[in-house]
Design a protein around this nucleic acid. Sequence first.
DNA 1: ATCTCAATGTAGTCAATGACAACATTGAGA
DNA 2: TCTCAATGTTGTCATTGACTACATTGAGAT
Lengths: 216, 216
Amino acid sequence: MGYHHGNLRSDLLARAAEVIAAEGIEALSLRGLARDLGVSHAAPSRHFDDKAALLRALGTDGSEKLANYVLSAADEAGDNPLKRYAAMGKAYIRFSLVFPAYYKAMTHPEVCAQSDAAFSASAERRRQIISDAARAAQAAGWLADEALEDVLMFSIGTVRGVSAMLADPMHHSQTASIETDLLIENIVRLIIDPDNPQRRLKPAPQKSDNQKRVSA
Amino acid sequence: MGYHHGNLRSDLLARAAEVIAAEGIEALSLRGLARDLGVSHAAPSRHFDDKAALLRALGTDGSEKLANYVLSAADEAGDNPLKRYAAMGKAYIRFSLVFPAYYKAMTHPEVCAQSDAAFSASAERRRQIISDAARAAQAAGWLADEALEDVLMFSIGTVRGVSAMLADPMHHSQTASIETDLLIENIVRLIIDPDNPQRRLKPAPQKSDNQKRVSA
DNA sequence: ATCTCAATGTAGTCAATGACAACATTGAGA
DNA sequence: TCTCAATGTTGTCATTGACTACATTGAGAT
């Protein structure tokens, strides 16, 4: 039986993701992971210089997964730049719910602060993907006169904030996924409405001529 | 000379705010605070049951400060509900920059998760203030057809997300405050534009007739 | 004036943790 | 078969949060 574990590194990351999803990042401990995997308390140090490095690796994985997740959603949405950007926004929020551990690691202050080359590269690619899509949406008429920087801060900020609120039991009752999907749908339409890119609001006090809104 | 410190409780909170602002919540330690204030390592336990309780108290203070800060900004903005809500959004984001420690404590997952009565009450009051203002803005024509729940999630989510990104050196170059003010101004106008509540976007591809946008 | 006692601070201790150093085992390839 | 880099283990230390027992203070009752 193995003195060598085989693939301790990936097992550590996988178990860390479980722990974070279940109990939060605060509850993560290197010794705890080692216990869970049946190795000695110092074994993790062979694969990660310190606790921050493990979290950074997890965050990097998450960053890449998110980029791919968002890009897939855009491609499924077709060619319309407005629909693509809306799909990306929804995917971004959903990712934070489907892969909470990756998302938490990715957005952890310590990870972002002392990021290594791999993490920075991944974050840069992600930003580029979103930035390109936003530019395309602007070219299609959405917030056409706003600076790209502002548009990005607005849309990324919104999805990030909504993700945080959906993850927080204080701000959102953790109920059925179907209601959450509708909420996401409605929120993202307030960022960008592909069916109505030029106007977000009805012209004036005028009764019921618009059925587009999804309601629970 | 005091065996009794006098007002250790408030000094602990004040010093904790300094530490958090300077080095982040992760760097906070009860023993460190005790050292900084020249008391024994167990002294803080006379005022806070545990580390989480201290953070909770700080978060509660922050929650109340934020509510007052936002309310003051609204009152300075006058009677127009749209201007009031925009002013509140800007104040919310600015609060996170002016009082980062209070804001970080207030939004810390652990604080929100196991919140006590005082924190919950403060959070509820804050939500009520924002909710009332959002309803008034809707009555004035802003997102009039949307559900209040969606409107709140959208607007609060956006200011929270933008706050997070402004605090994160990865997403925002920590430059002069004047540029940040312009950024905040532009972002909040994408949430609600008091000068143009019915429409966020220009009607179509049409060149330069709108000078309202602030640019750096 | 003194007594009482609750509030507040101190000293000592323990377990958990991250980090580090020294040593052991394994297996791939020279 | 030898070598050695990769990988795992044991031992240790400082820091920290939490707990217990004890000391000091000062306000108010007597």
